[in-house]
Measured scan of single mutants.
Amino acid sequence: HSHMSHTQVIELERKFSHQKYLSAPERAHLAKNLKLTETQVKIWFQNRRYKTKRKQLSSEL
């Protein structure tokens, strides 16, 4: 499990705020920019979407 830097997370968050789903080319581009693997980016987005979904569910209770 590799640790992401604060800067990388900020960039991922910024991208996520604009779009929740990335196409393969977008993911490849973002990964390259942030010096991450595409898998890391993919998993981060999956986890981030899951967290957002959970938060929405709990706020509706």
Rank of each mutant, 00 (worst) to 15 (best):
H1S: 08
H1W: 08
H1V: 09
H1F: 08
S2P: 11
S2L: 13
S2Y: 13
S2I: 12
S2T: 12
H3E: 10
H3S: 09
H3N: 11
H3I: 08
H3T: 07
M4E: 01
M4H: 02
M4I: 10
M4P: 05
S5P: 02
S5A: 04
S5Y: 07
S5W: 04
S5C: 08
H6V: 10
H6F: 07
H6P: 13
H6E: 08
T7I: 08
T7W: 15
T7A: 15
T7K: 14
T7S: 12
Q8K: 05
Q8E: 02
V9L: 12
V9T: 09
V9S: 04
I10R: 12
I10C: 15
I10G: 05
I10S: 12
I10K: 11
I10W: 09
I10P: 01
I10V: 07
E11F: 05
E11N: 04
E11C: 14
E11P: 02
E11H: 05
E11D: 03
E11W: 05
E11L: 09
L12R: 00
L12K: 01
L12V: 01
E13M: 09
E13T: 04
E13R: 05
E13Q: 06
E13L: 08
R14Q: 05
R14F: 14
R14M: 08
R14W: 06
R14P: 02
K15I: 15
K15P: 00
K15L: 11
K15M: 13
K15A: 15
K15D: 00
F16C: 07
F16D: 01
F16I: 02
F16H: 02
F16W: 05
F16T: 02
S17Q: 13
S17L: 11
S17R: 14
S17N: 10
S17H: 13
S17D: 08
S17P: 03
H18Q: 09
H18P: 02
H18M: 14
H18W: 05
H18S: 11
Q19G: 05
Q19V: 07
Q19N: 10
K20A: 08
K20F: 04
K20P: 12
K20G: 05
K20V: 06
K20M: 06
Y21R: 05
Y21I: 04
Y21H: 06
Y21W: 12
Y21P: 01
Y21N: 03
Y21Q: 03
L22W: 02
L22R: 00
L22G: 00
L22I: 05
S23T: 11
A24T: 07
A24G: 11
A24N: 07
A24L: 09
A24P: 10
A24I: 09
A24K: 12
A24F: 11
P25Y: 11
P25F: 12
P25V: 12
P25A: 15
E26Y: 02
E26N: 02
E26P: 00
R27Y: 12
R27C: 07
R27F: 08
R27M: 14
R27D: 01
A28Q: 10
A28E: 08
A28D: 03
A28V: 06
A28F: 06
A28T: 06
H29W: 10
H29Y: 09
H29F: 10
H29C: 13
H29S: 13
H29V: 14
L30S: 00
L30N: 00
L30V: 05
A31T: 02
A31P: 00
A31R: 00
A31E: 01
A31N: 00
A31H: 01
A31Y: 01
A31W: 01
K32T: 07
K32H: 10
K32L: 13
K32P: 01
K32E: 09
K32M: 11
K32D: 06
L34E: 01
K35V: 05
K35G: 15
K35S: 11
K35Q: 13
K35Y: 08
K35D: 09
K35A: 11
L36Q: 00
L36V: 03
L36F: 01
T37F: 03
T37M: 03
T37N: 04
T37H: 04
T37Y: 03
E38L: 06
E38F: 04
E38D: 07
E38P: 10
E38N: 06
T39P: 03
T39Q: 12
T39E: 14
T39L: 14
T39Y: 10
Q40C: 09
Q40F: 06
Q40S: 03
Q40N: 02
V41C: 04
V41Q: 00
V41A: 01
V41N: 01
K42Y: 08
K42I: 07
I43H: 09
I43K: 08
I43S: 06
I43L: 09
W44G: 00
W44C: 03
F45E: 00
F45L: 01
F45I: 03
F45R: 00
F45N: 00
F45P: 01
F45K: 00
Q46G: 04
Q46C: 11
Q46K: 15
Q46Y: 09
Q46V: 06
Q46M: 08
Q46L: 06
N47A: 07
N47F: 10
N47E: 09
R48C: 08
R48Q: 14
R48L: 07
R49E: 03
R49Y: 06
R49D: 02
R49A: 03
R49V: 03
R49S: 02
R49H: 03
R49I: 06
Y50I: 14
Y50A: 14
K51I: 13
K51D: 10
K51L: 11
T52V: 12
T52F: 13
T52K: 08
T52Q: 14
T52W: 13
K53N: 09
K53W: 06
K53S: 09
K53H: 07
K53C: 15
K53Q: 09
K53F: 05
K53D: 14
K53G: 09
R54W: 06
R54C: 15
R54M: 10
R54V: 11
R54F: 08
K55C: 15
K55E: 14
K55Y: 05
K55S: 11
K55Q: 12
K55R: 10
Q56A: 09
Q56Y: 08
Q56P: 10
Q56D: 11
Q56S: 15
L57N: 13
L57M: 11
L57V: 14
L57F: 07
L57T: 10
L57W: 04
S58G: 12
S58R: 07
S59I: 09
S59L: 07
S59P: 14
S59Q: 12
S59H: 07
S59G: 15
E60F: 05
E60L: 15
E60Y: 05
E60G: 13
L61P: 08
L61M: 15
L61R: 08
L61E: 14
L61G: 14
L61W: 03
